[in-house]
Amino acid sequence: MMEDTATRAQASWFQATARQRIDGLLDPGSFTEFLGPAERVQSPHLALFDLPAAFDDGVVIGRGTLDGKGVLLAAQEGQFMGGTFGEVSGAKIVGLLRAARDAAGGGNGKDDLPRAVLLLLDSGGVRLQEANAGELAVAEVMRAVVEARSNGVAVVALVGGKSGAFGGAGLTAATCSRIVVSEEGRIGVSGPEVIETNKGVEEFDAANKALVWSVVGGKNRRLIGGADAFAADTMSGFREAAIAVLGKVPPFDLKTLKAEQARLAGRHSKLGGCDDAVGMWKVLGIKNPPAVRDMDEDAFTGIADRLKEANHDAR
């Protein structure tokens, strides 16, 4: 029972590696990697901790086509060091984004580069072993995202890996033009364990996965406007969602930023008093909010796409 094209398209994004995701997302055979594993651009720091390095430092960057149109792409490998931002892994993403910025701005003579960047985020945030370099990398990535966007590049975050998008990855997602999330995807800044450690298990029980996902998981993020599209947890699910989202990216201008500010302020005043996700879904006017949890994708998309908070021109 060999793996065929149909089963590959239906394979789980959540369970896949970064390279499997790229294969499943882009047009077949279209991907060209920059700074591939053969060049062994790897972390100079991990050896100090007796930790194994990876030849790609857990980030794959390159270009390819999606539905025939060119895209640049960076994919974090969540199963290597939790997909964390280190000096090298961060610099690979920054370099990709700056190249896109410069090409779009017509400044570097490489204007054949695509005007779209996909960030396949799967990361718990900064790599603790590379603390300062990792923190700087996150700051540089966010700045690079904004600079690329202001030069007219669409930057889209795809979130559905095992490590979610926490810490610097959560912040990075928030700077993107659009965010696509699956039910298994999680987006946040402080991770569940961090909240539990600092505020106590009564505040947030990190071992209660149902609770964790109800708050930071893809369904809630989509319903409260924290993500703009909901993808099935498959290669084809993310491919279709990414194609759709790239077709309607908002311009990066004052109007969009003001709309984003208004959206966030409105959300805070409307949902700030809620204790849990079901409470928020109730305020949003969803009928039978507890049923959202086990709902299948079609039924969920039907609800999310009709909800005012989940559909906006901001970001």
Binding site: E184, K209, A210, L211, G217, G218, K219
Partner: peptide, 11 residues
Amino acid sequence: LYDPPAKFRNW
């Protein structure tokens, strides 16, 4: 009909 325990739910 099967209602998975909270610790197994990643949704």
